[in-house]
Nucleic acid binder design. Sequence first.
DNA 1: CTTATAAAGGATAAAAATTATCCTTTATGT
DNA 2: ACATAAAGGATAATTTTTATCCTTTATAAG
Lengths: 133, 133
Amino acid sequence: MINYTDELRRHNLKATPQRLAISNALHSYGHINIDTLYEMMLKKFSSISLATIYKNINLMLENSYVQEVKIPQNKSVYELTKSYHSHLVCTECGVVEDIKLNMIPLLSEVTTSTTFEISKTDLVLSGLCKKCQ
Amino acid sequence: MINYTDELRRHNLKATPQRLAISNALHSYGHINIDTLYEMMLKKFSSISLATIYKNINLMLENSYVQEVKIPQNKSVYELTKSYHSHLVCTECGVVEDIKLNMIPLLSEVTTSTTFEISKTDLVLSGLCKKCQ
DNA sequence: CTTATAAAGGATAAAAATTATCCTTTATGT
DNA sequence: ACATAAAGGATAATTTTTATCCTTTATAAG
């Protein structure tokens, strides 16, 4: 159980018990969708409202405290913001993993072939994890 | 106006007037979301149902006739299936462009660092297009 | 060129997902 | 300790997507 009080405040978010619990759920799961997060939260706060989950995730997104990962043919998952990385998704069991990849060569390829000024890169690699192969 | 009759049939989809129009809308727009597609279709079929749009897009996705592109902080757009490519998205005006990038080096990097067997790669590069810079 | 039939379209209801509202409670700066 | 803006909970309202039901139609076979 990490204490995320300061980290929340650093992102201009009041450190409420619900937000601390969301932070810990995100940390322990790594990646979690709204429904699962709601279920997890219900265990700690039996009367928490689903609206609270939505309001918080949206606010946390606005304040860059969490990131959304859009998963092909599935619901988005959320993660605590950390240094840049890509994602691996298992199409069988749905597990999501982080992976650090060097995007520099790709980005310079973009620079030479287009006039876009890229500021953000979202890469999701789908396939089978070890267990599901 | 391209005739997509054969192309639809090749994907086991009956060539109805509505589907031919959807095909042409996808072709002329390149990338289009559900709402815009519905608006476009209403011009040709004043009484087309939104349900028809959803049913067709879902069926076309199942039959790999179209692909979904999940856009960060926005609604998904759809495109006719074509050879593999990545996407550029302008965060200002929302325009979506295709871009061919060599993913081989990246994928071999994945192979050496993980046990995942990758079968699909979704890359979305966000930034500013020429006009919006 | 008919005809039979499975499938598609339209209208609409239902369900699912997300956001807004309103009032009570609480985190936090002073 | 207190004042206050903000957050939580309950719930309504919206929005998005899917299901249902009946009519129409694309298409394959004769």
